[in-house]
């Protein structure tokens, strides 16, 4: 069987639950070979899925993951930087350790994954990178200062990398979901969620399928003229 017939290689971070788990299973259904990671062990299996237990901001762990992909298949087609950490707190009562952890997971991690993935994508002059951001950035939500700032960093990273990596045939885009019923927003009070929904043009909660739909578009071969873009769901 040719390498192409085995399906593209898609790396997804944060696959143990939530949007990441959904995306991994979605692309496995589409015939991709998926490499995922999370800090915790995985509760599900698939023959076309390889899991790495690593923190996304651990440089050595990230390098090990990509070295493993190179030895197995010597190609990376897609990277989806999904792993994220949120904390709803007024800035005056936000502990330093929370600030550190959010920036490490939401900004440093995606940078490391982009860097290592692009090294392999560049050799084949093809690659698609999609970063997860949030509507908390354009909506400037009170109580999410560090989370929104880290994701604003991701959007800036997306735009600059789009320019740096274009000559390697790599596109870099971002998708900003509205609230989705996952563990990430479990602790957010209902009235806060309702207020957030009222700010959207389409005032409903999002779904993992909504996110996958946008990523499907960014990953398409034909989307080679689409880069440096951030697409928010819900008309934000």
């Amino acid at each position: 069987m040719s390498d192409v017939a085995k399906g593209p290689v898609t790396v997804i971070t944060g696959t143990s639950r939530g949007i990441g788990e959904h995306l991994a299973k979605h692309y496995l259904r589409l015939g991709h070979r998926v490499v995922g990671c999370s800090r915790r062990s995985l509760q599900w299996k698939h023959e076309q899925y390889i899991h790495h237990e690593t923190d996304v901001s651990d440089e050595a762990g990230v390098k090990r993951l990509f070295a493993d992909v190179r030895k197995r298949w010597n190609r990376v087609d897609h990277l989806i930087n999904n792993a994220g950490l949120a904390s709803m707190n007024h800035s005056l009562v936000t502990p330093f350790s929370t600030v550190h952890d959010i920036v490490q997971t939401n900004l440093v991690g995606p940078f490391l994954f982009c860097r290592e993935a692009a090294k392999q994508m560049g050799k084949r002059r093809f690659g698609r990178i999609v970063n997860l951001t949030t509507v908390a950035v354009p909506l400037k939500l009170a109580g999410e200062a560090v989370y929104a700032a880290s994701k604003a960093g991701v959007e800036s990273l997306t735009q600059v990398l789009a320019r740096e990596l274009a000559e390697f045939g790599i596109t870099v885009n971002a998708v900003g979901p509205v609230p989705i019923a996952t563990d990430l927003i479990r602790g957010v009070p209902r009235d806060k969620i309702d207020h957030l929904l009222s700010l959207q043009a389409i005032p409903r909660m999002g779904t993992c399928q909504d996110v996958a739909n946008v990523i499907d578009f960014f990953l398409r071969q034909e989307s080679d003229m689409v880069t440096g873009q951030t697409l928010y769901l819900g008309g934000v």
Binding site: A60, K63, R64, K119, G122
Partner: peptide
């Protein structure tokens, strides 16, 4: 040059088992 740096890093990993 970026391609060369990546190629040398990978060759060192393959030949010496060092990242």
């Amino acid at each position: 040059l970026v391609g060369l740096v990546v190629a040398v890093e990978e060759a060192i990993e393959d030949q010496y088992g060092l990242s």
